[in-house]
Amino acid sequence: MTETITGLHDVADRFDAFLIDQFGVLRDGAGPYPQAPAELKKLRALGKKIIILSNSGKRSVENSVRLAKLGFDEACWDWFLTSGETAWRMMAAETDGGARKRCLLISRDGDTSPLDGLDYNRTEDADTADIVLIAASEGDRYDLGHYQTLLQPAAERGLRCLCTNPDKVMLTADGKAFGAGRIADLYEELGGAVTWIGKPFPDIYDQAKIFLGAIPPRRICAIGDSVEHDIAGARMAGIASILVETGIHAEASPTERAALFALHEAAPDFILPDFRL
């Protein structure tokens, strides 16, 4: 049964480690929630292991630096684990030492970091690509028709596609827009097959558990704003979860949230108004 709490102090002694979502918990598309940097520091002062667990197509280091530039103290987390980092490690392990392959990369603002250091060259031509990597969305700039035109030839050729950001909705400075996960849905609608990496899928949780070592799952708690990704992912990983009322479901009524719990067969253990100790 879901319990409403006023702050993490109500449950902090039950857990040794927290997996904390970035967007919707610590920040929105414009910047950090006002109290979040100080509250994260308070949680860290309790001696908890903290992993920032994010469905970002960018690698871990870039996200960590970006969050620090927004006023967060990098000493407050042990690792910034992203779906992009998970995918990069998977792709690096698959390198066979042969000729460099061509990747149709879907990212934001020309970002190529998901491929940096890998044996892949970026291409914008689906007819010559060997693989598709959907790392981010520019749904605040383009409509889905733009992505259909770009991806349809790849889907028709049956190219393997990795989605390293399963979020269907993203928070931008101007509000909500469709995320990379929606573009990956489109690829499947066009007949292509997608390998999903990130929350709620197991690979990212497996890496987090390995990093946390001997801490048992019952002493690990995920904090997120998305029922579909954070809460469902925590349930499948066998760990506790807290849903904050900020982020993508901020305007949802209790009835609407309950419907989401039923839809995704995942109810949080706790509900928290916003991220605070």
Results as ranks from 00 to 15, higher is better:
1 M>A: 14
1 M>D: 11
5 I>T: 06
6 T>V: 13
7 G>P: 09
9 H>Q: 15
9 H>T: 14
10 D>W: 05
10 D>I: 05
10 D>V: 03
13 D>F: 15
13 D>V: 15
14 R>I: 10
15 F>Y: 14
19 L>H: 03
21 D>T: 07
22 Q>T: 15
24 G>L: 02
24 G>M: 00
26 L>T: 00
28 D>I: 12
30 A>I: 12
30 A>G: 10
36 A>F: 04
37 P>R: 03
39 E>H: 13
41 K>T: 14
53 L>K: 05
54 S>R: 08
56 S>R: 07
59 R>L: 10
61 V>E: 08
67 L>E: 01
68 A>S: 07
68 A>E: 02
68 A>T: 14
69 K>P: 07
69 K>C: 13
71 G>Y: 05
71 G>D: 06
75 A>R: 15
76 C>P: 03
77 W>I: 08
79 W>Q: 05
80 F>E: 01
80 F>A: 06
83 S>F: 03
83 S>W: 04
84 G>I: 03
84 G>V: 06
85 E>S: 14
86 T>Q: 08
87 A>F: 12
88 W>I: 08
89 R>K: 13
95 T>E: 14
96 D>A: 12
103 C>G: 04
106 I>G: 03
106 I>C: 03
108 R>C: 05
110 G>H: 07
110 G>N: 08
111 D>W: 06
112 T>F: 01
113 S>E: 00
113 S>W: 04
114 P>E: 02
134 I>H: 00
141 R>F: 11
141 R>A: 07
143 D>H: 04
144 L>G: 09
146 H>K: 11
147 Y>T: 01
149 T>H: 14
159 L>R: 10
160 R>E: 12
160 R>Y: 08
161 C>L: 04
162 L>T: 13
162 L>P: 00
163 C>K: 06
164 T>Q: 02
168 K>H: 15
168 K>N: 13
170 M>H: 07
170 M>S: 10
172 T>F: 00
174 D>A: 15
175 G>A: 03
177 A>W: 00
179 G>H: 00
180 A>M: 09
190 L>Y: 04
191 G>T: 13
198 G>V: 00
199 K>F: 09
199 K>M: 00
200 P>M: 05
200 P>R: 08
202 P>A: 04
207 Q>V: 14
210 I>C: 12
211 F>T: 09
214 A>N: 13
215 I>K: 01
216 P>D: 00
217 P>W: 09
222 A>M: 13
223 I>T: 02
223 I>Q: 04
230 D>V: 06
230 D>G: 05
235 R>T: 10
237 A>H: 03
240 A>D: 15
240 A>L: 12
247 G>L: 05
247 G>E: 00
248 I>N: 02
250 A>W: 08
252 A>I: 07
257 R>P: 07
258 A>L: 12
259 A>M: 11
260 L>C: 07
260 L>G: 02
260 L>P: 08
266 A>G: 07
270 F>A: 11
270 F>E: 02
271 I>K: 13
272 L>Q: 03
276 R>F: 01
